[in-house]
Amino acid sequence: MQTFDKPDLPGNWTCDFNTGVGEWSLGGIWLDRQGARLAVRVAQHHCNAFGVMHGGALATFADGQALAVRTYSGGADDHTPTVSLSVDYLGGAPLGSWVVADVTLLRTTRTLLFTQALVTADGKPVARTSAIYRNFKGKDAQ
């Protein structure tokens, strides 16, 4: 299954971020910066023995929520490390579904970004998350 297929969802989606290589790679992360959303299609290698997205893969996806509310230049000094991530699992994201995080920027300080997201799979809630990221150089989020 291709993880680089464009989401058939309303919004201005671009796939300008790839999570890297390896078995747990999410592949291409689709961003809708205007809507502060990110999305990924659940592929076989994301799934557990029950055919739904593994909780660790879902948490990895949720950890990218800063991408939806901040611009990145791609430089080494543009890193936003995670200080804290909390995930409350509400349901399963089946193979082939689009997992979408609707991200809310709660607060930006000189050193931290505070976010929360509701994560859905084909429109059904699967997780509620909150995260705190280190904000180097005091960059403001969008």
Rank of each mutant, 00 (worst) to 15 (best):
D5T: 14
G96Q: 07
W24A: 14
F50T: 09
G22V: 10
V100Q: 05
P10C: 07
V83G: 07
L67R: 09
S130E: 06
K6C: 13
A57Q: 12
T108L: 09
A117K: 02
G96D: 01
W30F: 08
G56L: 04
T82W: 01
A131R: 00
G75Q: 12
W13F: 08
F61V: 00
R41Y: 03
G35I: 08
I29V: 15
Q65S: 13
T109N: 09
A59T: 14
G55S: 09
R33P: 13
T120D: 10
G51E: 06
D5R: 14
F4Y: 12
T108W: 13
N18R: 13
D8V: 09
D16P: 04
G56S: 10
R134G: 01
V126K: 01
A131P: 04
D32M: 06
F4L: 10
G28K: 10
P10S: 11
A62Q: 11
R110P: 04
S86F: 12
R134N: 03
A68H: 02
H54P: 05
A93E: 06
S73I: 07
F61L: 00
F4D: 14
S97C: 08
P125D: 07
A43D: 13
S130R: 11
Q142I: 15
L85E: 07
G96A: 04
K6S: 11
N48W: 03
R37N: 03
A141V: 08
G20D: 04
V103T: 07
T19C: 05
G96F: 01
R70Y: 13
C47W: 02
A93P: 10
L95N: 03
T3V: 08
G74H: 10
Y89K: 00
L90G: 08
G74T: 06
C15S: 14
